[in-house]
Design a protein around this nucleic acid. Structure first.
Length: 541
RNA sequence: GCCCUUGUAGUUCAAUGGAUAGAACAGCUCCGUCCUAAGGAGUAGAUGUAGGUUCGAUUCCUACCGAGGGCACCA
């Protein structure tokens, strides 16, 4: 890679100047007119050498050897050094872009990574928060894979608790209801039927009633089957499923075995978080039952049972931030080897802007109803609807709330999933057409080119943008931030559309080989990028 | 009260301490249908406030103001 050789050359030149320890970057310049790569090495070095940045940049440039593939080196601005690539290298990179390893890196090479996300609860509805968790988790899993990791996908589901009792109670009253509806009804009735439902909850725990057991099994299986359908729509395939019924037992046992970590207080077993700058949380309540905290601890055990991992990441909602800090502090006391191996990524709320979609099913918008409604809006195209939702979630920093405008999400104008999908579809259509055409070294398409060299300009801009895809993926992998890829794809799609509009590629049954190569490269890159985001890459729209 | 997250054009989002803060939508001007116009070109518009660190701050630190969330037996 050219970038690596530029880095090495700078490193060597810095050493000559006696500044080998400075940390500099070689990155894509803010403006394309500044070249293909830029470095702040002189600016950083100037600090430790206590010298004028521009002068350092000048002498640094003079010390640089000729770097293969670099056509021009220039000092600019406050002391940036800009590098321009030669046309031959650009052509080579367009060729590389259609290869298998395009966009892959080795940040997590050989590591075993467990990614836990989605986490819906059987007997309850699959809501929008689960959609968020799924979109982010799936993409992060794929970013790990792009970095060479061996990834296992995990789903953690609450199959015990009051919510189950609410649903079963309601189902007994109104058997015609779906489980999702039953839960909603049971929740509404909980206040007035609290004793009865709590009693039922106990019965479920103890498995003492044959009829209730049957209903429980039936509901659990139905929910899980139903969720499987949604995962399929979303493009997720889990390797492991964990359940609270199992982690509760494990957690209880673990807390019992570690009196040095926990203490008794008011009949409960707690973790005194204040000792480590956090707050206290209850792990086993005064009735002797494991709380969510103990279950989370049990989940760690369950995960470890599945095999060794180098990293274990959980995708969950923002409001559990402090909760996770405490649980993690407790977990690290019990499992010191896990320090720095447990990661969390948080997501915000998804807020809908218009009332257009919210009229159905009362005020509750489930994840499924959102997909269904958008599919309808997208003329029955579920892949477009899923792409629209996921892109809206993944186009911004994780952890922030998302203002979801259904109309905008589906719009082909502006940064949206469908906009990127559409650009991809155009490249594919073009490639189909090109199959019927004769491939020529040079096509005389001057007649259709716009005056002022617009097509050459847009073509070169597109080519030079392509070069940075691997760097973008690498950064996204490192930061575990899918939005870097999403932003790039919007840019690439836009750049491709500009070129497409400025130049006719197939003229009189002829297409030039270099134009065709560029289309292939764009097609492959858009496909790879969407894939990393976990967004469907359609053949036609 | 304490803790966490957050504040960028009218709106929705970008910007690993670096160059003229980058897009999209809405606004205003254009391009009309031949490879998917479900598109393209142009134009105008922003860092909450006050300090500090730095050659350089949207980014780091402090205070204030605004928004969201969390703080004992729910998940």
């Amino acid at each position: 890679m050219v970038r690596t050789s530029i880095e090495k050359a700078i490193q060597a030149a810095l050493a000559e100047l006696g500044a080998e320890d400075v940390s500099f970057v070689v990155e894509r310049p803010s403006d394309m007119s500044h070249g293909d790569y830029a470095t702040n090495a002189a600016l950083v070095a100037a600090k430790s050498l206590k010298a004028n940045p521009r002068e350092i940049a000048q002498s640094l440039t003079e010390k640089l050897p000729t770097i293969e593939g670099v056509k021009n080196i220039e000092v600019a601005g406050a002391g940036f050094i800009n590098f321009s690539l030669s046309p031959e290298v650009l052509t080579d990179i367009v060729g590389e872009a259609t290869e298998e390893g395009w966009g892959k890196n080795s940040l997590y090479l050989g590591q075993h990574v467990l990614v836990e996300y989605t986490d819906p609860n059987p007997f309850k509805e699959f809501h929008i928060g689960h959609l968020m968790s799924n979109a982010i988790g799936e993409s992060i899993a794929r970013l790990f894979e792009a970095g060479g990791a061996d990834v296992k996908r995990a789903n953690y589901q609450g199959d015990v608790g009051v919510h189950v009792a609410k649903a079963i109670w309601a189902k007994r009253q109104k058997p015609e209801m779906s489980w999702g509806e039953a839960y909603v009804y049971g929740s509404a009735e909980y206040e007035t039927n609290k004793e009865e439902i709590d009693e039922l909850n106990k019965t479920i725990y103890e498995k003492s009633d044959v009829e209730v057991n049957k209903l429980y099994e039936q509901g659990r299986n139905q929910s899980l089957d139903h969720f499987e359908g949604i995962y399929k729509t979303l493009g997720t395939k889990f390797d492991y499923y964990f359940f609270e019924s199992e982690t509760g037992v494990l957690g209880l046992d673990l807390v019992d075995k570690h009196p040095e970590v926990f203490e008794r207080s008011d009949g409960a077993t707690i973790f005194r978080g204040e000792n480590v700058g956090l707050h206290t949380r209850v792990f086993i309540n005064s009735k002797g039952l494991p709380t969510y905290e103990a279950k989370e601890l049990g989940l760690v055990v369950a995960k470890k049972k599945q095999g060794q991992f180098d990293l274990s990441l959980t995708v969950t909602a923002n409001e559990t931030r402090d909760f996770f800090r405490v649980v993690r502090a407790a977990a690290e006391k019990i499992f010191p080897d896990l320090e720095d191996k447990m990661l969390t990524r948080f997501h915000g709320f998804l807020k809908l802007t218009t009332g257009k979609m919210s009229s159905r099913l009362g005020n509750v918008i489930t994840g499924e109803s959102l997909i269904r409604d958008l599919t309808e809006e997208a003329r029955g195209r579920e892949d477009v609807a899923v792409g629209a939702i996921k892109f809206m979630v993944l186009r911004q920093n994780t952890g922030k709330d998302i203002i979801f405008d259904p109309e905008k999400s589906l719009s082909l104008e502006g940064d949206s999933g469908p906009y990127v999908q559409y650009a991809l579809v155009r490249t594919r259509s073009l490639l189909r057409e090109a199959k019927k055409a004769v491939i020529a070294d040079r096509v005389n398409s001057e007649a259709v080119r716009q005056p002022g060299g617009a097509s050459e300009l847009t073509r070169s801009a597109l080519t030079r943008l392509l070069v940075h895809f691997p760097d973008v993926v690498a950064r996204a992998s490192m930061e575990l931030e899918p939005h870097h890829v999403a932003t790039y794809l919007t840019e690439l799609a836009s750049s491709f559309n500009s070129w497409y509009a400025s130049e006719r590629l197939i003229v009189d049954g002829e297409v030039s080989s270099d134009a065709l190569a560029l289309v292939r490269a764009v097609e492959h890159t858009l496909d790879r990028g969407l894939n990393i985001l976990g967004i469907p890459a359609p053949q036609e729209m």
